[in-house]
């Protein structure tokens, strides 16, 4: 297992957001996590990244390294990049500077240039917009920039929090196509989505999170056919 989350408990004061969540992700997979508003999806990603502290449970990297207790920048150093909910582009910095930040821990300019070329290959529009301030990019371009920025860290595991949020269907399709491409090139992906149909179409396996607990887990194709999933997340 590349990443295994075991019995994770996370609270905001008295509110228990995660109540014993277990998830495992194997090398090379795309794993989807679906669930309604407030289910705890973002909380899970932020805890894996070290932005939130867990109350109980463990997060193991490659079966041996405990991530609980590490600071967020240390988690990045292990090869985990997180594309946060709402993209969180640095609005006052240029697209290029946003990308450079994604590769902050890499000191070699040569290596960074190479990585940026690869990101421009995935998202040609970013090359055209590289000197434009992040805040002036369109929603779709910002999402591409956020994913490109995370790829600048050459992650082994990419955490994506609702990449389809607020985007037109055509752009969503494009983003998911790129997610597949990134995965095909060897990056493992943990994909959080409310757009369950899209997510389960690209994923190999999936988890259904409901009010802080995993209710269901199966292969993506089985979940797409599951009656509860259809009823609750696929609009019938």
């Amino acid at each position: 297992m590349l990443l295994s989350v075991n019995n994770l408990e996370v609270s905001y004061g008295a509110i228990a957001a995660l109540q014993g969540v277990s998830v495992s992700i194997d090398r090379g997979e795309i794993v989807a996590l679906i669930g309604a508003n407030g289910a705890g999806k973002t909380t899970l990603l932020r805890t894996i990244s070290g932005l939130l502290k867990a109350k109980g449970g463990s997060v193991l990297w490659e079966g041996k390294k405990e991530l609980r207790g590490l600071a967020a920048h240390e988690v990045v150093g292990l090869g985990i990049s997180h594309v946060p909910e709402g993209r969180q582009i640095f609005p006052h910095l240029s697209a290029r500077e946003n990308l450079m930040l994604g590769g902050y821990q890499e000191r070699s300019n040569g290596v960074l240039r190479e990585r940026m070329e690869r990101v421009f290959g995935l998202f040609p529009v970013l090359a055209e917009r590289s000197e434009q301030r992040g805040g002036t990019l369109s929603g779709g371009e910002q999402q591409m920039l956020a994913i490109g920025r995370a790829m600048m860290g050459r992650p082994r595991l990419l955490l994506l929090d609702e990449p389809s949020l607020g985007l037109a269907p055509l752009v969503v399709r494009k983003i998911f196509q790129i997610i597949r491409e990134i995965n095909a090139e060897g990056t493992t992906i943990f994909l959080v989505e409310q757009n369950a149909h899209m997510a389960l179409t690209v994923a190999h396996r999936g988890y259904v999170l409901q009010t802080g607990r995993v209710m269901l887990t199966d292969t993506a194709s089985e979940l797409l056919e599951h009656s509860d999933v259809k009823k609750a997340y696929l609009g019938g």
């Binding site: 990244s49 932005l51 600071a71 967020a72 920048h73 930040l101 902050y104 821990q105």
Partner: peptide, 22 residues
């Protein structure tokens, strides 16, 4: 590189730390 980190941190702590910035 330090200056870029400074400008990022001036905007947001959490996103900056996701970039790998201490």
């Amino acid at each position: 590189r330090q200056g870029l980190a400074l400008r990022a941190v001036s905007y947001r702590f959490d996103t900056s730390s996701l970039m790998g910035i201490n």
